[in-house]
Design a protein around this nucleic acid. Structure first.
Lengths: 375, 375
DNA sequence: GTCCTCCATGTAATCGATTTCACGAGGGTA
DNA sequence: TACCCTCGTGAAATCGATTACATGGAGGAC
């Protein structure tokens, strides 16, 4: 493979001049520049980023560690991160932690060895020694989606509190009184928050939530199915089950289908986390949608701020209730689509889902102040 | 950040010795080794992979360029590639071409600059000059899922011919006579192959396929919906629509739901590409499943073969028909599950889908000879 | 004509590892 | 005692770029 030295020889200049051409240094005459370009083309020269990085101490690469690459939420997040980073001239290396602390650490270490310029991490439950060391070492780091307690690290995440409150009101307005919640692990910040928010919202809306209506899952399909089964087997089963994430909702659908129950007539379903196909099936699933792509983009910007030595501020964006038909909503009518085709669905590059989605009042109103900044 | 020189000073040895410890060179006494380890721990030393790569001319990194990161097929592929590569001590850098030739080239170039040891590419339609140059330059390259004509590059892909033939027989046995196909772009090898296979299989099964029953989509949701609409509007609409990939199936579901039609009573649906949720909705969608994870693993092994200087052979794996209930199949009974819980579904880390899936006879028989090797 | 300035270009040090070769201590053999 | 091997370790070259500093020629001011 041709090196800068070969290009220099071919063009009859020094390596310094070739380097200047590579870096768009204006102190090169147009004529020399052209000669160098010609030499590069003739030799199929591809600059060696490894050598450049060694010298410049910068790789123009960001590391992203996600929870589970098979979860569509993280996929969408990764895509947005990649888009935003590429626009800024950065490459992204993705690590899939598979929700395991040891895998997470494996990637943190590998990415540090590769000398990525900064790290975006969706942390697993634990504060591992390696992560602590990264923080202590002052390396640019941003938490995404989830946060770890006790560490002074900027974070970018969604807050579902308001959307969950709205959901509780929505269910009450539909006449439901018995609503159950299958939450995520208490070890994840997202799991804890959603549970707290649900209990408060249910209380406020006057919904009864006996202890047996709150179950703890693990954000995976199997627990969604098993816990749904347990709820359906109760002497007084709930009218609606609220699943703490999209994978557990998958499991719930499975259990409901296997029992031959109909949605929403026999049992209502809501999912935290909206995924593309929720709007395409029959009936479409009512869900709380996180501004996933925006989270990814914001996280990159926060990290780039840190890299530029600017002050990095944590970001919290509101989640939104997307009303569809899985809780007994009437098919049509009602106040329609606040941001319709320009909203999340369009962001995902899909055709609209037929205009039947409604965003509730509260969140629609909030849309204007999306992205309030916190300390 | 501590360098090898600092570790050497701290341990009272030379940099050469530290390097030997890093590389598990046996010519170091146990006592020295321990001193070096202690020094590394004291300084929080993280070896600099950039410097190492410059010297060794190897990055232990593979590049993977996928068609569309929002398509679950590619997500699963990426995951499998990553798993297999990590097991072999390699890191994977993923590039999302978004089905655009310019994006593909952007990543090919970026990955070459990063000096990845090898490339796995799911090529877009065109043979770009850059790709040609990579081939001519003899850099390790493997095509995955799709192939480009006229280039002598090993490939790893699935062949749906047999599964499509089986599907045609299955539909005929269910009493269907009018089956339509929405294919992928003729510019992609996967699009062409599926169309050819469908026409041959329909003919063999005695299904009538008038020209207006074959439509050309673009592997995206919108075209699936629009072309489904066109088929449903025909004077004599088909009884079953076979979608060429999972995203177009999403669009078809959308159109069917909007029209208030029922599956399978009003219209039957089959999808090429099985995705996790097809088995979890009502009714579960009959689909042709590719051995996605195995494709990814095989591709890595072929690439590693090339890196090791071994002869690299292309691999073709058969796709399988997964019979569910979206074409009017009777709910239960029939010969059941050939590989059930140990098959693809389990591979994806999901709970089984209730044991209602059936694999047809032909593919079940083929399972034994999966992975025949071609030149 | 001399001197100074400016500017395009070249020379060489540098980044942090790996690796070749040399060296010296210790032990075995003659 | 002299010689040779073995073995652990160190000194220094090297990978391919960037960049501070040096250089030399053209052109303007006096």
């Amino acid at each position: 493979m041709a090196r800068i030295k070969d290009v220099a020889a071919q063009a009859g200049v020094s390596v310094a001049t070739v380097s200047r051409v590579l870096n768009d240094n204006p102190a090169v005459t147009e004529e020399t520049r052209q000669r160098v370009y010609a030499a590069m083309a003739a030799l199929n020269y591809v600059p060696n980023a490894v050598a450049r990085s060694l010298r410049t101490e910068a790789t123009r690469t960001l590391g992203l560690i996600i929870g589970d690459i098979l979860n569509p939420f993280f996929t969408e997040l990764a895509r947005a991160v990649e888009d935003e980073a590429r626009a800024a001239g950065y490459t992204v290396v993705i690590g899939n932690a598979d929700e395991r602390a040891d895998r997470q650490d494996h990637y943190v270490r590998a990415l540090l060895e590769q000398r990525v310029d900064g790290l975006l991490v969706c942390p697993t439950a634990e504060v591992t020694p390696l992560v602590e060391e990264v923080v202590r070492g002052g390396r640019p780091l941003v938490f995404l989606d989830r946060v770890l307690p006790g560490l002074d690290v900027p974070s970018v995440r969604a807050d579902g509190t308001e959307a969950i409150r709205e959901l509780a009101g929505h269910l009450r307005d539909l006449g439901h009184r018995r609503v159950a919640f299958i939450s995520g692990p208490g070890t994840l910040s997202t799991g804890r928050e959603r549970t707290t928010a649900f209990l408060a919202a249910a209380d406020e809306a006057g919904l009864a939530v006996p202890p047996e209506y709150v179950r703890v899952g693990d954000f995976r399909t199997g627990s969604g199915q098993a816990l749904t089964a347990a709820l359906l087997d109760l002497p007084e089963p709930p009218e609606v089950i609220f699943l703490g994430d999209n994978l557990m909702a998958l499991g719930a659908l499975d259990e409901i289908r296997e029992r031959g129950l109909r949605i929403p007539d026999d049992i209502g379903i809501v999912s935290f986390d909206d995924v593309p196909w929720f709007g395409h099936i029959s009936p479409p699933i009512t869900a709380i949608s996180q501004p996933t792509a925006e989270l990814g983009r914001r996280a990159v910007r926060v990290l780039l701020d840190m890299l530029a030595g600017r002050r990095a501020e944590s970001v919290v964006l509101p989640a939104h209730l997307i009303v569809r038909s899985s809780c007994g909503e009437s098919g049509e009518g009602g106040e329609c689509v606040a941001r319709g085709a320009t909203g999340e669905a369009a962001e995902r590059g899909q055709a609209g889902t037929g205009g039947r989605e409604r965003r509730g009042r509260r969140t629609a109103a909030l849309a204007g102040e999306e992205g309030k900044v916190t300390a």
